[in-house]
Design a protein around this nucleic acid. Structure first.
Lengths: 106, 106
DNA sequence: CCATTGTGTAACTGATTGGTTACGTATCAC
DNA sequence: GTGATACGTAACCAATCAGTTACACAATGG
């Protein structure tokens, strides 16, 4: 089968490199859809669809300003990702010290 | 079109909830494929395929022991995720303090 | 009003995903 | 050797993805 109604899932939203790039781009400040689109070689509708996914995951918010739609970064949902990954931090520290011991030929 | 040769991409690997659950499960210690499979309601081959994806992303390693294949968590690639998300931490702190100010009716 | 600009959406497409069942193969227990 | 066990993988399938082009529509600028 396939994933459930996986909309709004942060992990899925950030799985796509283009969407991560859009978020990265928005760290410099809010931007209208067109400006974002022209930063990426893909077509404008493609970016529009990525923005929709990000919107559904609540990673960006949209303000209408005249005929523009300005997108603003909302990083809050990323806390869920940060929280999940955090649970592994201690493990990769162990991994590192294991590697060190191994390299030291111990 | 579609993603490039997106194998080995950590972000893609952790996009699936079942795969995240497998990783979570492996934090308790290494486990053979069969044991993992019986923890998840999906069929054994389905889990086997998830394990393959995790393997390609180098999030787990496989040791053969007799007829078993024991999987061990390797969290190192998660550092890339942690690093990426880290770049947003300051932003969500801003988001929080904005919210606070807003709630305080300021 | 009319043309232009900025944008979302519909319709379509090929690739990929995540699942299944059926099969192949190596190891263990006898 | 034989049968059971623990796997991975092939073949297949429906659903979803990420893109495209064509279209609709609201706001601006004359």
């Amino acid at each position: 089968m396939a994933r459930a109604q996986a909309h709004e899932d942060v992990f899925r939203a950030i799985a796509d490199p283009t969407r991560r790039a859009i978020l990265d781009r928005l760290r410099a400040g809010p931007a209208p859809a067109g400006a974002l689109a022209s930063d990426f070689k893909q077509s404008r509708p493609a970016i529009s669809k990525h923005l929709r996914v990000l919107r559904e995951a609540r990673l960006v918010s949209e303000q209408r300003a005249g005929r523009e739609r300005v997108y603003t970064l909302d990083p809050m949902p990323l806390q869920r990702v940060a929280g999940w990954v955090e649970g592994y931090r201690s493990f990769w520290q162990v991994s590192l010290s294991n590697l060190k011991r191994y390299l030291e030929g111990k």
